[in-house]
């Protein structure tokens, strides 16, 4: 399969201990859920996919994205968008500045970039928020800006590291639906890491269970 995200006999070890072993593929628009208790190596798996694995770990196997082997590529060349549990908006930039950080430099001209950001903000119901300090946003607003920042960078896959667990119950479903819908409409393979069964259910796709590493 050429399209989508393929984890080919992926194996992460630390010293002699195997942390994670996964063999899976995620088609465009599909959501693969990885579940497991804390300490099962879920975040390690995502770090391997984004290319930010700590040097103490060894990675075996291959990661293919739309048929391209990205295993050895630096993080910035992989085009794997990631959303964490915390929104991690850059506190020194405005809301618009955060979105501009994600917008590729190929879109040139200050006015054009600004217009693109304004459109993006309108799409998530936050028109006019560009000059705001991200610290003044509500939890739901932060989550939406973080999602939009990721999408503006035109990723080829979306990785989710328990991105809904910080939100309160009402908001959680709303943001979850938004993220899944946007990913599906853009045809992105999604890898969702969670320990919340409700997330897995909402995703509706296949589920992989990771064991505890000391089992």
């Amino acid at each position: 399969m050429a399209e989508g995200l393929v984890l080919e006999r992926l194996r992460i070890t630390q010293g002699d201990t195997e942390m994670v072993a996964v063999d899976a593929s995620v088609a465009p628009g599909e959501i693969l859920t990885v579940m497991g208790p804390s300490g099962s190596g879920k975040s390690t798996l995502l770090a391997a996919l984004t290319g930010t694995l700590a040097p103490a770990f060894t990675l075996g196997g291959r990661i293919l994205l739309d048929g391209r082997d990205i295993t050895a590529l630096p993080p910035e060349a992989r085009r794997t968008g990631i959303l964490f549990q915390d929104e991690l908006l850059f506190p020194h930039l405005s809301v618009g500045g955060n979105l501009a950080f994600g917008l590729p430099p190929a879109l040139k001209g200050r006015a054009a970039r600004r217009a693109r950001i304004e459109t993006a903000l309108a799409e998530i119901g936050m028109a006019g928020f560009a000059p705001r300090d991200p610290a003044t946003l509500s939890g739901g607003q932060k989550a939406r800006v973080a999602l939009m920042r990721s999408l503006l960078a035109e990723p080829r896959a979306l990785l989710l590291d328990e991105p809904f667990s910080r939100l309160d119950a009402g908001l959680r479903g709303q943001i979850r639906t938004l993220v899944f819908e946007r990913a599906q409409s853009q045809g992105l393979p999604v890898l969702l890491v969670t320990h919340d069964a409700a997330d897995a259910e909402a995703a509706g796709g296949r589920v992989i269970l990771l064991g505890r590493r000391d089992d």
Binding site: A47, T50, G51, T52, P74, P75, E76, R78, R79, T80, G81, I82, F84, D86, L88, F90, F101, G102, P104, R149, S150, A153, P155, L159
Partner: peptide
């Protein structure tokens, strides 16, 4: 928080 670096690099920024 090194996750800021992970986010920035996933958005295309080099080291």
């Amino acid at each position: 928080d090194a996750r800021h670096a992970a986010v920035a690099r996933a958005l295309g920024a080099g080291p």
